[in-house]
Amino acid sequence: MATRSNIFDKIIFDSFQLTPESLGLYRILYALFLLIFGVPNFTWISRFPDVFYNPPLLSLHTFFSGFPSYWFLLLVSLGTCISTVLLLFGYKTRLTSILLALFIFTGKSFAYSFGKIDHDFLIWIIPLVMSFSNWGAAYSLDAKLKHQDRVVQNWPVVLLALILSFAMFSAGLPKLLGGWLDISTHAVRGHFLREFYVNERQDLLAPFFLNLNSALVWEFFDYAGVFLEVFFIFAIIRPNLFRFFVICAIFFHVFNYLMLNIAFSINIILYLLFVDWGMIISKLRKHRMLLSIERAINFRSLLIVGLLYTSFYLIYITATESVTFNVSPLRFVLEDLMNLDSLIFSGIVIFLGLIVAVLNLIHFVSKKKDFSDSTIPKYMHN
């Protein structure tokens, strides 16, 4: 029993060991990702009548008999925006992370009250879980003000790995039980044809796959998808194996994007938590970029960025009459300025994640070592 307990302790507390610098950089990346792609606007919800109100079981429906008012949703949206800016600069990081999660949970409770829960729920869990990791220990105002020590916790990263694994498993198990491995049928091809003809997803490489008639290739797609999703959960016992599965998942999303024209670009930010940050930090340090990041973290920058972004955000969501759903207003502006449609813009995010995945894979193969940070300080071993 003691041995079994030691094994679980090792997986929970010794896996995915990251330095304060690794977590600090990931915090900045996560906040930037939200500011550009994912700070949602919830005010559109108030435009719908209560007849559409069909909240999920775990939500705030107990306190509301219908959709809340515009002003309530505006406050929730602004709270999400301001919390994200504060998280970017790492000010009162733990409190800010929890508040950000609460604001998003509140808004999403109503956004999901139309009878559909989107795939992006994994992304909104990150700040709540990572608030316990001390990801404000480096590259933050808290670090400069010495509000937080340098001791970081590994178990929140393991918890997110478990959540991701169960999400993958819950997607793969129905496929496994539903006959995806039956060699007499081609499930992926059937799904592709439905998307091509019914939903008219006919861009990128879709025409090429339409003319692909190899039964062996289509059956390989069936098996590869099921095996990736089902066995994801077993990879968590080894950090290097789990990170390899994460890299495979990024390739999987690139494949879905090119063939099915479906872009789960928002999932990329969760995958990037598990990459080899030690390798990335060493390259950034070589080009003195870490020093620039350190200098940019100050109260003057916080005030300027906070005022500019919050003003833009408030003006946009109050001036537009369009239904913006759960996408950052800045994304709409960038798409217009760059003259890109939503599919291509999402593809840019996916391929940026692919570049990181390829760099990590090359680093792993060339160094022949675990994907964990190359140097783990003694203070991280509790």
Results as ranks from 00 to 15, higher is better:
F255L: 06
A263I: 10
L273Q: 11
V254D: 13
L273K: 11
R285H: 05
Y271A: 11
L273F: 11
K283C: 02
S282A: 14
N261A: 07
V254H: 03
Y271D: 10
K283N: 04
N261E: 03
F255Y: 08
L284H: 02
F274C: 05
Y257E: 04
L272H: 08
W277K: 01
S282W: 00
I280K: 01
W277A: 02
A263G: 11
M279Q: 05
F274S: 09
A263E: 07
I266T: 13
M259V: 14
V275E: 04
I268R: 08
K283S: 05
I269G: 03
I262H: 10
R285W: 01
L270S: 15
V275W: 06
N261V: 03
Y271M: 13
L270H: 09
I262R: 05
I280M: 12
S282C: 02
I262S: 13
L273E: 05
M279A: 09
I262F: 11
F264E: 09
L258C: 06
I268F: 15
G278W: 02
N256P: 02
I268A: 12
I269R: 11
K286E: 12
L258G: 04
N267R: 07
Y257C: 02
V275F: 14
I280Y: 05
L272T: 14
H287Q: 10
Y257T: 02
G278I: 01
N261C: 07
I281C: 04
A263Y: 11
K283V: 10
L260V: 03
L270M: 14
K286P: 00
K286Q: 13
N261I: 06
Y257Q: 06
K286T: 03
K286M: 04
K283T: 01
L284C: 05
S265L: 03
V254M: 09
Y271L: 08
R285V: 00
L258S: 04
A263L: 08
I269P: 07
L284I: 00
L260G: 03
I280W: 06
F255R: 04
K283Y: 07
L270E: 07
A263D: 10
Y271W: 14
W277M: 01
L272S: 12
L284T: 00
N267Q: 10
G278M: 01
L270I: 13
L270V: 15
F255E: 05
I280G: 00
F264K: 10
I268V: 15
L270A: 15
L273D: 07
L260C: 07
N261F: 05
S282T: 13
D276M: 01
L272R: 10
I266C: 03
I269E: 06
A263C: 09
G278T: 03
I280F: 14
V254K: 02
L273T: 10
N261D: 06
F255M: 06
S282P: 00
Y257G: 04
F264C: 08
I262E: 07
K283R: 13
H287E: 07
I266H: 15
L260F: 14
I266Q: 15
L272N: 13
G278A: 03
I262A: 13
H287Y: 14
M259H: 05
I266V: 11
H287A: 07
R285Y: 00
N256L: 12
L260A: 10
I268M: 15
M279K: 08
S265C: 11
D276Q: 02
N256A: 09
I269N: 06
R285S: 11
S265T: 06
N256E: 11
N267I: 03
N256M: 12
